[in-house]
Design a protein around this nucleic acid. Structure first.
Lengths: 348, 348
DNA sequence: CTGTTAGCGCGTTCAC
DNA sequence: GTGAACGCGCTAACAG
């Protein structure tokens, strides 16, 4: 297009920012060559590469990602939906995911569901509009609409932080239920007589619900004849303060419990610190277990007996799987169990 | 274009997903009308709105964001660059930012700098390619290249978590230096004789550096004749474990210190728990102060004396300012000081 | 290895 | 209130 044509043409708005065509003009090549230098420099002559790179520097060109996305039908983004960002263990998984994906040129877009299936559905619908190349989800329980949308999108999906035999696509996780069964087995071995499950189980938090099931199954198996005891709130946030509140509730409802098994380390830590304040001896008078092996678990006095889960690795492995899928490599397996590990410390 | 033409035309790949034209066909209107119903339903007849909405439901249409971005030159995204995502207080700021921006239809894209100015520069350059409508940054110290890129981008920018008289564009924060000066004044009032600053100051962490300056200024003012004492690591992560390590270093270098002022609550918490383990009485034998008022501060025994900063509000206010700017409203002020508050508890 | 051509799906402009 | 035409900036396809 000549300058004359351009003047004739109805000009709309323009970004008035440097475009690939501008770079091409400066470098004395076609726009296509600029594009190729950016994406596969090996298929261009060294002179072209050098001239284009110099032109990019001198013009301060920044590639327009939306245009690239539209033309190539690849957005180079991966959406990750987690329950919560702030004060959340899922941020570690995100970090693992993001670190590996960034290496491969993918940007992670984060959505959060606030532990609600409805919000998750809204978030998935909304973020699907950004046409991500892949999806990462925390949890394996989703509404039918979510499953439907993601199947129809026909992109790789990895679920995590739980276990199921029928993932939407692929799964990198561990069994929350098996983890709590092992915790109950440990309690039995250590001779505790009346273990109580204490936790906050928010409506959309299936991981916590599976831990509760695991406790019940574990008691059935390892404590025959013992009636399981649970102290479960449905709306408490996962904070140390909630742990203090739940401790009080547990002591009121089951004053003779000798072990409290919390659904999260944060709750357990809050309870342990509250015990210290109130002069309740841990573990002598009351033992405490947590879940997650947060950093605080090893620093408390006594150290918190808990279950370590591969928070960062889940993100990293999920990213590796997604990258392989995006290269059209077929996956070896649909599911990857990263397991968990009981960490015995002083509190139980 | 007729079906015949379409057959003649070289067809590239297509997303084979539903487009606005498909919806228009089903609804019996033009694509323009579909677009209008989506963006400004009030300017369309109720019948059109209803028919289009029904067509969207039946086709399960999801708008292509990249195409919308390219055509309108608005990406409806805001980039936020924070030092770190996992185990980070900045996640709270992010939550505040994101909550308010989502309401207005903006998606937040997160980048992290790992406390490095070089990484920040790379991240800013990369994310600028997504043509965000606005930018949010933690910190006020950036490389010249970052400032240049953001000025040239000609979009609203909010910096936060610190203070400066010459922000790139706008600023929502507080003075880390003033905060530590106030902490030193408090120490003086409470009669401590040898307060020591203890912290990890990573290369790109200007906030921590400003706290250190604040300590030095506070000592000069409130402890005339006293030689300031600092125990500063440059590479320790901001964790409780580091707090334990720093406590040991502080006790070795300045065994007669009666107050340790940590640059972060996480470090202080780790130190306080380590004191408990080693039988050091807090605050009698050694007092401890933190920074940030993390949740753990109020749960520890004794409670941690610290400085509370408006983590969530900084994000919310930043979002409100950005939204106003994106509506082309002129800002009342360039800077917004949200202050801080000293919270006195048992540890000092 | 490089250039030409066409079109990705949408929003803006303008005419009705 | 609605539709037709056009182009946003880039890349796939093809030809040389």
């Amino acid at each position: 297009m000549t300058d004359f044509d351009r003047r004739q043409t109805r000009r709309r708005f323009g970004t008035n920012s440097v475009t690939m065509a501008d770079v091409a003009r400066v470098a004395g090549v076609s726009a296509q060559t600029v594009s190729r230098v950016l994406r596969e420099p090996d298929s261009c002559s060294p002179q072209s590469v050098e001239r284009v790179r110099e032109a990019i520097r001198s013009t301060q060109y920044v590639q327009n990602h939306a245009a690239s996305h539209l033309a190539s039908n690849r957005s180079m983004t991966v959406v990750a939906v987690i329950p919560q960002i702030a004060a959340s263990i899922f941020a570690e998984t995100l970090q693992g995911l993001s670190n590996v994906l960034l290496e491969a040129g993918y940007q992670v877009i984060i959505g959060h569901s606030d532990y609600s299936h409805e919000r998750e559905e809204a978030v998935v619908r909304n973020l699907l509009g950004r046409r991500p190349d892949a999806f990462f989800l925390v949890g394996t329980q989703h509404t039918e609409a979510v499953r439907g949308m993601l199947m129809r999108a026909a992109i790789p999906v990895v679920e995590s932080w739980a276990w199921t035999d029928s993932p939407i696509d692929q799964l990198v996780g561990f069994s929350n239920e098996a983890a709590l069964q092992e915790a109950v087995a440990y309690a039995r071995r250590r001779g505790y007589a009346r273990p109580t499950f204490v936790g906050s189980v928010r409506p959309g938090d299936d991981r916590a619900r599976e831990r509760l099931s695991g406790y019940l199954a574990g008691v059935a198996r390892h404590y025959p004849g013992f009636v399981p005891r649970t102290v479960v709130a449905e709306d408490l946030p996962y904070t140390m303060t909630s742990g203090r509140v739940l401790l009080a509730a547990a002591r009121q409802h089951h004053p003779d419990s000798d072990l409290l098994m919390f659904s999260s380390d944060l709750l357990a830590a809050g309870a342990l610190l509250a015990c210290e304040r109130e002069g309740i001896a841990v573990p002598k008078q009351l033992a405490i277990m947590g879940f997650g092996d947060y950093e605080v678990a090893s620093e408390l006095n006594p150290g918190l007996t808990t279950i370590a889960v591969p928070t960062v690795r889940m993100g990293e492995e999920a990213a590796r799987i997604l990258i392989r899928r995006l290269r059209n490599e077929t996956p070896a397996t649909r599911t990857l169990d990263l397991g968990f590990e009981l960490v015995a410390r002083g509190s139980a």
